[in-house]
């Protein structure tokens, strides 16, 4: 009947020396190397400290009912302006009459409490002597991230379309995208509200009285939203009205953020540890060679031998 090796254990041999001795210095030196060298190698090979991280989340987006629709006609000095924001002259009755109807729907198809699509519909009355040459639509959105990096901001969805032939209807399908120039300063339990203010603030009206100023201001933000066109369809033909339908889908978005110190340590630790194990094995082999061959003076303590 053959025998199988089921378990094995080592017999410990201790090597002892005084505090001030070559052996002690060598042991300290190798221990320090064992600690430092893995760190240097892990750091110099890059990627030890994670500088950014990302996650995916479908934001909670709501239309804030602040909007500007500018339908430029062939006479650019007389655009059709649909807005309720007084800064842009909503008291222009002639222009307001042309904005016959606006319809807003926020659709949640998945039933998870987050809106999956924003549907905006404008119905414009076009004076018979004018034709629409371009459309600029600015929608103000309330944008919220709620999971890893809580954030709430007021952002814009900007849709532009130019027409070669006078249109009668525009159907636009697009995705709302999250665009960031820097990583979010992600802090636990602290909602980032840096940009959580209306872009059409009344306080700004002194200096920011033009749409270009607002757009320029928005451009210089670190975190914005943008609209990516999936497809758009224009129905040609000059009629006395024009319909603009915008289907704005709100997909899951990638958000980059600066990890916390703890998170960085979490990722750095396994990298460091993997090198430490190798160096530990290596230095143990070196020490084993040196002490077993008596290259450094030390007392060898064997548990099965008693002092005579």
């Amino acid at each position: 009947m053959s025998l199988y090796k089921l378990f094995s254990s080592n017999v410990e041999i201790q090597y002892k020396s005084t505090f001030l001795s070559k052996a002690m210095f060598f042991t300290l030196f190798t221990s320090i190397l064992n600690i430092i060298l893995p760190f240097i190698i892990a750091q110099k090979s890059r990627g030890l400290w994670v500088k950014y991280h990302s996650f995916y989340e479908q934001p909670t987006v709501h239309f804030t009912y602040e909007y500007v629709l500018i339908a430029e006609t062939e006479d650019p000095s007389k655009p059709i302006l649909c807005t309720e924001i007084g800064l842009f002259g909503n008291d222009n009755e002639e222009s307001s009459e042309s904005c016959a109807e606006m319809q807003v729907q926020e659709n949640d198809f998945t039933g998870d409490g987050k809106k999956d699509e924003l549907y905006i519909k404008f119905h414009l009355n076009i004076p018979p002597d004018r034709t629409v040459s371009s459309i600029l639509l600015i929608l103000s959105l309330d944008f919220q991230l709620k999971t890893i990096c809580p954030l709430q901001m007021q952002s814009l969805a900007l849709i532009t379309k130019e027409f070669v032939i006078p249109p009668s209807e525009l159907i636009f399908h697009g995705d709302l995208n999250f665009y960031q120039t820097t990583h979010l300063p992600c802090e636990w339990f602290n909602q980032d509200t840096k940009y959580n203010r209306s872009l059409f603030e009344i306080e700004k009206w002194e200096s920011y009285m033009s749409i270009d100023h607002y757009l320029s201001d928005y451009f210089h933000r670190e975190v914005t939203t943008e609209v990516r066109t999936i497809n758009s369809r224009t129905y040609n033909g000059q009629t006395d009205s024009m319909t603009v339908q915008v289907h704005l889908r709100i997909p899951e978005m990638q958000i980059r953020y600066t990890p916390s110190i703890l998170e960085e340590f979490k990722w750095a630790w396994p990298q460091y540890l993997s090198f430490v194990v190798i160096f530990h094995w290596f230095f143990n082999k070196v020490k084993e060679f040196i002490f077993t061959n008596r290259l450094l003076m030390s007392w060898k303590v064997q548990s099965w031998k008693t002092f005579e």
Binding site: I70, E72, P76, S77, P79, L81, F88, G89, M209, S210
Partner: peptide
Amino acid sequence: YANINNFCTNRKPIRFLNNEKIKCNVKLSD
């Protein structure tokens, strides 16, 4: 001043100590 496009479609008051430079397009009559 122009707030919608580059045409002088609106007017705003001149305010004390606010230097301005308005550039916008108009028709000859305006």
